[in-house]
Write a protein that binds this DNA or RNA. Structure first.
Lengths: 135, 135
DNA sequence: TTTAACCTTGTCGTTAACGTAAAGGTTGAC
DNA sequence: GTCAACCTTTACGTTAACGACAAGGTTAAA
């Protein structure tokens, strides 16, 4: 059981961020003392890592909330699971679309790199045998 | 040559957005009338599409500004091109990292989908022959 | 030349995701 | 039991990326 400051440090965020996430429904302290102190366990740490990754990929907290909610669907009633399934599927599609967009951007980038390299070797180092593109 | 309203509609954004992008240095009208009217051509339309894609992938306008700047490096001096090259390369790395994160998320999602489907078929439809996962 | 439809530059408002300081309780090692 | 280090809630501030007026100028078709 970590206090908020400890787990925050472990996760690389601030306590403020944790309270904010709680307020937005992304996490919950595993225990709360009578005085109101929040205590967390390693599960929360795992969730925070997941949040970090998904954020880095461009999801909003709202979207992330949905996604991580899905991973704790085990105790939910049967009917909820079917809805979950539908959502998971559409989320999968979104992810696929983002991946292909990034891959397209990647291709364009590579092209641009080659072009720039060509121009460099033509203008800058006339007559030199260059090693060609690395990628 | 489109007026701002026309190109905005084509690009699926508002004129306000175009002015904002201009202010942030992402685009420039190809011509400006003496009265101050902005006129754009198809090149700008292409850039706007690119911006849309990169935004959808989670880049900020500031990052996007850098990226699209690179694609108009043709007229820049030689020395600038080498810096460009370095940046392009690091940007490529970032993209690769994002892609792999998304692919990881995708795998986890698929697992979760299978789990949910299993639980559904076990609890809900006892004795039924289910078709198994689709993916 | 009139007029609807568009454009201009402000300026203020809004949402997301926190940062930051204020004023005051809590803990736990000594 | 004291005190530094931590925690609480409350509340105002901030950046990004626009939206939504307001007040007035421009265009181009009829």
């Amino acid at each position: 059981m970590y206090k908020i400051g400890e787990i925050a440090k472990q996760a690389g965020v601030t306590p403020r961020t944790l309270r904010y996430y709680e307020q937005r429904g992304l996490i919950t302290p595993s225990q709360v003392s009578t005085a109101g102190y929040r205590y967390y366990d390693d599960d929360t740490l795992a969730i925070l890592t997941r949040i970090r990754n998904l954020k880095h990929v461009g999801l909003t907290l709202e979207e992330i909330k949905d996604v991580i909610g899905l991973y704790f669907t085990l105790k939910k009633p049967l009917e909820a699971k079917e809805k979950t399934l539908v959502y998971l599927d559409s989320h999968l599609n979104e992810i696929n679309s983002k991946i292909s967009m990034l891959q397209k951007a990647k291709l364009e980038l590579k092209e641009q790199i080659q072009l720039t390299q060509q121009r460099l070797s033509q203008l800058g180092v006339k007559g030199q045998k260059n090693g060609g593109p690395k990628n």
